[in-house]
């Protein structure tokens, strides 16, 4: 027991030391605008592309560390308005971004980074032979939607309304990943998710495009935050993701560039 406790104590001390060192690093501005640490709060649907963009940025700016906190954008917005230390915020909807700008936490106006569209995610091979929104209303077809309170749910509602399709979903998920998991596990026959999310899990499931999705496009605004500890680095990072190279990473993930509107 004694040995184990000692070891645990040593581990805790090490962790504490690391944490303190990390804090120190954030406080000391490194040479150049892009130096030090950049903390990004990004919507969960950006997980794959922003992980890549962060690494690219670090490679282009040696000595800089990019830390990205991925979560539902509403949760991130709440954290930011409650004072979480972040430099950049990317939301999955203008409405969510609005809660941050309304609270006065943004430095400047947000700009639209990318757009995302809904697709119907179906299990690989499309066993239910779903070809459009109308198929989702067929009896016996189980559908997962996002809850209306989250952006993908709001978009789904708009798209279904535009198509004049009324359906009773099996579940209203709290986020896209939840809806996708239900499709992957075969618990539902279809889910309305973002194209990017469907593409990230390609292989495990298929994506069915549908025309009404154009009516429910989701904009992803990006902004540098007012209380950014590293505003220079934050701006440099935003410039990087908005560059041609950055957008190429995002479009490869299934996003559309805002110019295509």
């Amino acid at each position: 027991m004694t040995v184990r406790w000692t070891r645990a104590a040593r581990a805790a001390t090490a962790a504490l030391t690391l944490a303190l060192a990390g804090c120190g690093g954030a406080d000391e501005p490194a040479a150049g605008d892009a130096g030090g640490r950049v903390t990004v709060f990004a919507a969960a649907s950006l997980t794959e592309s922003f992980t890549r963009l962060g690494r690219d940025f670090e490679a282009a700016h040696p000595g800089t560390t990019v830390t990205v906190n991925f979560a539902g954008s509403s949760a991130l917005a709440t954290q930011i308005t409650q004072g979480a230390p972040a430099d950049v915020f990317v939301a999955a909807s203008p409405a969510t971004m609005k809660t941050v700008t309304d609270a006065g936490d943004a430095a400047g106006e947000p700009t639209i980074l990318v757009r995302n569209q809904l697709v119907i995610a179906v299990p690989a091979g499309n066993p239910g032979r779903v070809t459009g929104l109308a198929d989702l209303a067929r009896p016996g077809v189980k559908v997962a939607l996002c809850a209306e309170q989250v952006p993908c749910g709001a978009a789904a509602k708009t798209a279904l309304g535009a198509a004049g399709v009324r359906l009773t979903p099996a579940t209203l998920e709290q986020d896209v990943k939840g809806a996708l998991a239900k499709v992957k596990l075969g618990e539902v026959d279809a889910a309305l998710v973002y194209r990017t999310d469907a593409r990230a899990t390609a292989g495990a499931l298929d994506a069915v495009e549908f025309p009404e999705s154009a009516r429910a496009v989701n904009d992803y605004p990006i902004v540098v935050l007012k209380h950014a500890a590293n505003p220079g680095g934050a701006r440099a990072f935003v410039d990087h993701v908005r560059s041609a190279a950055g957008l190429a990473v995002l479009t490869a993930a299934g996003f559309q560039a805002p110019q295509s509107r």
Partner: peptide, 11 residues
């Protein structure tokens, strides 16, 4: 929410 999902009145 993972097993039973989320639907008003039911789960």
């Amino acid at each position: 929410i993972t097993f039973a999902g989320n639907y008003p009145g039911r789960t």
